[in-house]
Amino acid sequence: QTDPASRLTELLEPLHTYSADFQQRVQGDDGQSLQDASGHMWLARPGKFRWEVNAPYSQTVVSDGAQVYMYDPDLEQVTVRDLDPKVTSTPALLLSGSAGELTSNYGVSMRAQGDTEIFSLSPRGNDSLFESLEMTFQGQRLTGLDLVDATGQRTEIGFDSIEQNGSVDDSRFAFQIPEGADVIREQ
């Protein structure tokens, strides 16, 4: 029985690119949905991703491997920050980091049912935005990501129309700052 961390590495290592639609649900503490958003995510590991949220929560988050751009078209505002460990607590970046980086920053446990493997990750440091993260793989494909914060508030992200290791154009991970957008550089 391989240990959970190496099994997770086994599943993530061959994942070079990933593209999927996502549904994101923010749950209240009695389980009702507080916010339902949808969009599309592209990953090119290591370090590159694009996370596009559809209206009415329109937002684009792009990492080109060096910097992360968070663009809000409604506010016409772009926040730019360096790609760094603190930011890796965002789900998309977590997935585009190297498997080794992931398993060294997080304690990993696993439970399996049939061809579904669910990995629970808890951050070793205490500065993470969330208290635990669950990654669900079905038939070796990443299909879900759940984030739970300190008070048990849950964000569930489900993926479908998944394409793993397909060809993703590198321009997908470049971000042009739109004319007239308000740019905020964060350290």
Binding site: Q35, Q59, T90, L147, D149, Q153, T155
Partner: peptide, 11 residues
């Protein structure tokens, strides 16, 4: 009022 950052985190 639900006030959330990206990814619904930090709400």
């Amino acid at each position: 009022m639900l006030i959330t950052g990206p990814f619904g985190v930090g709400r």
